[in-house]
Design a protein around this nucleic acid. Structure first.
Length: 279
DNA sequence: TTATGTGTTCCCAA
DNA sequence: CTTGGGAACACATA
């Protein structure tokens, strides 16, 4: 399931490959492919030219030469793929776009095994599509307010792991990068935010930003071919994971075996020696 | 057959 | 009204 680094990898790929192309044809191929709140069906985008891309947290959008955007959320398994002859056809295609730029033609598909992802046609409001208006800025947003985010976390009464997954406090972090950020900051995932020092909270945000920046540089994390970019390529950050998915493997910092616990129905991986609740 | 999964939203209780 | 926790959503794989 794509988190910010994977969504950003997809956005960059799309930006590079489809900017300037005109949507010749657009069709949804599954009843849940397009959000019910969508202002219009995908077919209404026929004739529009793609001018660029945008992202906040895990929400992604394609801008057009009209006052509407095509918004996408990849959910747990959504993919944008450029069809290529030498690649087997994707098995869960939910939407298809035929694109054209002078004599060049491209087929862009939205593929999604688990159908938690969606597309929708929306208006922009305050710099983001309406469906993302409740999503907090991510740490790569030029207007991200670091101190305000520390303060917001400090007054919550939740476990830090849950707070990191809350996209209304700070967006972009999912289960993988939450575990990695906490490992780097040496914070126990069950530490309660209101009991943490501002310095510790700041360290967690800094670690999250740093680990996501490194992951973007590696093209994201791919465990299997569920996460791949628009060209079908996997990212390499899985080789750099210190905690996530490393149950019973030695902590890269101290050698203690990484432990797995469940916090609000999600797996959390941490080092029981260097991530203590009291610190 | 059962457990698990990179996410979000909705419902309920405090 | 606000906040936090858990279930639900759907499908594939181990």
């Amino acid at each position: 399931m794509p988190e910010l680094p994977e969504v950003e990898t997809v956005r960059r790929g799309l930006h590079h490959l489809v900017s300037g192309y005109r949507i010749v044809q657009a069709n949804d191929l599954h009843p849940r492919a397009v959000k019910s709140e969508s202002l219009a069906p995908l077919s209404s985008l026929q004739g529009a030219r793609i001018t660029g891309t945008g992202r906040r947290g895990k929400f992604l959008w394609i801008t057009l030469d009209r006052p509407l955007v095509l918004v996408a959320h990849l959910g747990m398994s959504g993919q944008f793929l450029i069809a290529q002859k030498d690649r087997p056809a994707a098995k869960h295609i939910r939407a298809h776009f035929a694109l054209k730029k002078s004599l060049r033609k491209l087929d862009l598909v939205f593929n999604d095994q688990r159908t938690f992802g969606w597309l929708s046609v929306e208006e922009m409001s305050d710099g983001v599509p309406t469906s993302a208006s409740h999503i907090a800025r991510d740490p790569f947003d030029p207007d991200f307010d670091f101190q305000a985010t520390v303060a917001k976390l400090a007054k919550r009464n939740v476990r830090i792991k849950s707070a990191l997954l809350n996209q209304e406090i700070m967006s972009g972090v999912g289960n993988i990068y939450a575990d990695e950020a906490l490992w780097r900051a040496q914070v126990h995932p069950e530490s309660v935010t209101s009991e943490m020092s501002a310095k510790k909270i700041a360290a967690v945000i800094e670690s999250a930003t740093q680990v996501m920046a490194e992951a973007i540089a590696q093209g994201g994390t791919s465990f299997d071919d569920l996460y791949i970019d628009v060209n079908g390529e996997s990212g390499f950050f899985d080789q750099s994971l210190a905690a996530y998915g490393q149950e019973d493997e030695p902590c890269p910092r101290c050698g203690t075996l990484i432990k797995r616990i469940v916090i609000s129905a999600r797996s959390s991986h941490f080092c029981p020696r260097c991530q203590r609740k009291k610190k």
